[in-house]
Design a protein around this nucleic acid. Structure first.
Lengths: 187, 187
DNA sequence: CACCTTCATGTCAGTCGCTGACATCCCTAG
DNA sequence: CTAGGGATGTCAGCGACTGACATGAAGGTG
C-alpha cells in the first residue's frame, strides 16, 4: 500500500459511529465523517450509496446468511419453522460479543426516523427474499409472504428483547419465545 | 378568498401525482410541482414536511380510523381479532371507487425505494399504535406487538390482492382471507 | 528497468431538497 | 377604519448527492 491507507470503508464506518454518538446523526455532515477517516466527501459516496448506508453495511451478509440457512433447512419443516431456522442463523452473527455494539447502534437508529426507514426496508427485503425461497420449495405465494413477515415480526421482537435484556439468553432463545408468543396470539 | 386560491394542499397533491406519473418521481422537482399548483417551492414545504410526504397525505386519517375502530372493538375479542376489526375499518375508506387511484399510487410507490421506505414506516407506526391500544385493554407487550404486526402483514397482503384483482371482492374480504392464511401458516 | 494499465482517490462544479428570516397582503375582528 | 393574524412570497444559505475529469500508486509486461 502506498497512496491509500487500506480499510477505507471500515474507517468511514468507525468515524461515522464515533461522530454520530458524539453529536447525533443530524449534527454530523458527510464531509466531517470523511475528514475524520482521512478521505474526502466524494470518496464517502463511492463506498456508500448515501449517508444512512454507512450504518447498515454488513446487512447484506446478514440477509445472505438468513436466506442460505432457510434454503438449507430440511424440506419437511413447515414454512414458519423454516423461516425461524433461517432467522436463527442470524444468532451466530449476533452473538454475545456484539450485544453492546448492537445496543449502541440500535439506539442511534431508534433516535432518527430516517434511519428507522432504512432499517425497515432492509428487513422487509430480507422477508421478501425468504418468501421467494419458500416459494421455491413449493409454498404458495400467500403462505410464503405471511410466514416470512410473521417470522420477521417475531425476529424484531426477539432482537429488541435480546439487546435490552441483561444477557442471560441468546438471540435464538428470544426468537423461540417470540414465535411461541406468535402461535399463542394467532391461534 | 382573495389573494390565495383555496385548496393549496390538494392542488399540490394533484400536481405532484400528474407530474410523477408523467416523468417519474426522480424526474420531478419540488419547484415544478409548486409551479404547476400556482405556488412556490417554499409554500410546498409549509404543507408537506418533505417531498415524499405529498404522496402520503391522508394517511393520518387512515391511522386514526384504524386505531379508533380497534379501541371501539368489543373487549372479548382476541388481540388478533381486535386488530383485524380495526384494519377492516380501513375498508370503508378504501372502497371500490378508490381502487383505480390506489393502484396508480401504489405503482408509483413500488417503483421508488424512497417511497417504499416512507410507506413502511407509516404502516409500522400504525402497527405500533395498534399495539399500544391493545396494551391499554390489558394485552401483554409481546402479544400486543405480535398481534399488531401479524395483522398488519395480513393487511398488506390483502391490500396488494385487492388492488391487483379484477375487483370481485372488497378489501375486508381479502383481509379475512389473508388472516385465514395466517392462521394456517402459524398453527 | 521502463512502460502501461488499472483503480481508488481527489478536485470541481453543479443540482436539488430543505430551512430560517423577513416582507407582503388579504381577511376578519373590534 | 384600523389592527392583527395567517397564508404566501422572497432571498440567502447549508448539506446531500452526482457527473466529469485529473492524479498517482500498485502491479504486470516487455
Amino acid at each position: 500500500m502506498g497512496r491509500w491507507q487500506p480499510g477505507a470503508q471500515g474507517r468511514l464506518q468507525q468515524a461515522a459511529m464515533e461522530l454520530i454518538v458524539e453529536r447525533g446523526y443530524d449534527g454530523v455532515t458527510v464531509a466531517e465523517i470523511a475528514e475524520r477517516a482521512g478521505l474526502t466527501e466524494r470518496t464517502f459516496f463511492r463506498h456508500f450509496a448515501d449517508k444512512r448506508e454507512v450504518l447498515f453495511a454488513g446487512q447484506e451478509q446478514f440477509a445472505a446468511g438468513v436466506v442460505e440457512a432457510l434454503t438449507a433447512a430440511p424440506p419437511q419443516l413447515t414454512p414458519l419453522e423454516a423461516v425461524v431456522a433461517g432467522l436463527a442463523a442470524a444468532g451466530t452473527w449476533l452473538n454475545d460479543e456484539r450485544r453492546a455494539g448492537s445496543r449502541v447502534r440500535q439506539g442511534v437508529i431508534d433516535a432518527h426516523p430516517e434511519l428507522q426507514e432504512r432499517e425497515l426496508i432492509k428487513l422487509a427485503r430480507v422477508a421478501a427474499a425468504m418468501a421467494t425461497s419458500l416459494q421455491e420449495r413449493g409454498v404458495g405465494h400467500a403462505e410464503a409472504v405471511l410466514a416470512a413477515e410473521a417470522g420477521m415480526a417475531a425476529f424484531r421482537l426477539a432482537f429488541t428483547r435480546w439487546v435490552d435484556d441483561p444477557g442471560e439468553h441468546d438471540l435464538p432463545w428470544h426468537l423461540d419465545a417470540a414465535v411461541e408468543g406468535l402461535r399463542a396470539v394467532v391461534a
